[in-house]
Design a binder for these strands. Structure first.
Lengths: 213, 213
DNA sequence: CCGTGACTGCATCTTTCGATGTACCGCGAG
DNA sequence: CTCGCGGTACATCGAAAGATGCAGTCACGG
């Protein structure tokens, strides 16, 4: 038996969801919440297997509520929303949601989704999966607006200095860390600025950040 | 009619896939490839709607082949593999795959997947979705070592200046862009440095980068 | 109406930065 | 050998950045 907590502020919609869930013999609706705060509180109290969470809710929005529920390890969360706006999707997933569904989902698909998530698997509405994939692909593989190859033309010392610049250190601080005179640090800074075609240490710092140094 | 190209090196498995696909009246298998090179070549020649691509293939692996097919805009790619190893999944998705399925998928689910991807939607095998979500959540959401809330204490003007700092601009350049005297820019820089507890514009630039400004 | 406080703006002064010239060392080619 | 060359190092000097003091504006409540 899958114990479900339904969190949805519109009572009509909530009633519909409950009706659908009750129609399944293996699913039990253990509680209903009308806002995010209540959802978190009931999740703590009832310890459901899964929370069916609406995004738009008063007092505490669904994404924040999801974050809390997941952080406390209370239950898996299946997020439900009317709109497939990217900010909702990504926000909900980053908050730790196990799945994301649109409200136009068929009753049987909703039930299937609940069972899928309850099995510990993830689930994303097909309509949003592609954008999630695109976002995923774009994320970790930052576009090399700056070719890491430019670092090749720097000497070891210059790269060390660049690394320090990326941390926002002053010439004096760099001198101390790398054990050289401040004057020497300036030399290296000047040289690497020239090689990288930059005009100030600030731009060098930004570059260092982009390159993950 | 959905035109599909099947790329799979093991002929027995390939025959099985073709058999399943042919059983659907709305799906047509337009070609078969036994390795990655052949898959790319046939995709160029046949222009299928979708390529069903195995990960492990000789000459050119499925992930690389996927990258090429997607880069050339030849077709959508549905990646198929026996193992749900993370490196395969993430690699394939980063390569631009529209979907990812395990080979233990039921025949009817395979057909549903083909139709889903052909509709332009994405699709991930439920068993791997959760890990994808976890990876997604972990990736782009760098730990907020810097609380975005610190920006609240800055005035509008200070935030504008901070934004410019993030681009590596000099005080003079900022003054021109924001239409104010250089002396005034310095004032704002000083103020925001104080509020953010930083000691130089370089650190401010780094911070601006981290906050994505 | 007048204070009060937050925001924005400018000018002055000290510190830091960055460009430039120079020098030393190690190494390979002539 | 000794010359050139790249890497490293330091000192000097004009330019920028940063701290500080102060004034004008606007909104708020007394």
């Amino acid at each position: 038996m899958i114990r479900v907590l339904v969190a949805e502020d519109q009572s009509a919609v909530r009633a519909g969801l409950v009706l659908i869930l009750r129609s399944a013999p293996d699913i039990e609706v253990v509680g209903e919440a009308a806002d995010g705060e209540q959802a978190v509180a009931l999740a703590r109290e009832l310890r459901p297997d899964l929370v069916l969470m609406d995004v738009q809710m008063p007092r505490l929005d669904g994404v924040s509520a999801t974050r809390r529920v997941v952080a406390e390890g209370l239950a898996d969360v299946l997020v439900l929303t009317t709109f497939d706006l990217d900010e909702y999707v990504f926000g909900a997933l980053r908050a730790g949601a196990a799945g994301f569904l649109l409200k136009n989902t068929e009753a049987k698909d909703l039930l299937a989704a609940v069972r899928t998530v309850a099995r510990g698997e993830g689930l994303i509405a097909p309509a949003v999966t592609r954008r999630l994939i695109a976002e995923f692909a774009a994320g970790p593989s930052r576009e090399p607006k700056t070719d890491p190859a430019v670092l090749e033309q720097l000497t070891r010392r210059e790269r060390e200095v660049l690394s320090c610049l990326g941390e926002g250190l002053s010439n004096a601080a760099i001198a101390e860390r790398l054990d050289m005179a401040e004057a020497t640090v300036k030399t290296h800074v000047s040289r690497l600025l020239g090689k990288l075609e930059l005009r100030s240490r600030v731009q060098a710092a930004v570059l260092a950040q982009e390159l993950g140094i």
